[in-house]
């Protein structure tokens, strides 16, 4: 089982986690047209690469961010949301 590094609980097996999708900031609903909003809601970027992902450590209900290379499945680092950075 793959190990995921939780910033609070440390390295744990992936079975303790729930995956929350790629981090996608919500655009201002009042400032975008219908197509842009629909794209935010339904479309995802499929190209592989290092992505920021939401992960939740289920036993402690801790949401955090993982930077993972979706091609090699290598985890680069993880941190809490308030330590978020742009990549």
């Amino acid at each position: 089982m793959k190990l995921i590094p939780c910033p609070i609980n440390g390295l744990r097996p992936v079975g303790e986690f729930v995956y929350g999708g790629e981090v996608r900031p919500m655009p201002d609903p009042n400032a975008v047209d219908d197509d842009t909003w629909a794209s935010y809601v339904f479309n995802r970027t499929g190209a592989p690469g290092v992505k920021q992902e939401w992960w939740c450590h289920s036993p402690s209900n801790t949401w955090f961010i993982v930077e993972r290379n979706t091609l090699t499945d290598e985890i680069m680092q993880s941190y809490l949301y308030d330590e978020m950075r742009t990549i």
């Binding site: 609980n9 303790e16 450590h57 289920s58 036993p59």
Partner: peptide
């Protein structure tokens, strides 16, 4: 203190 899963149940 460990927050983890044991036999499928969340435990402290």
């Amino acid at each position: 203190i460990l927050l983890t899963s044991l036999i499928g149940v969340v435990v402290t």
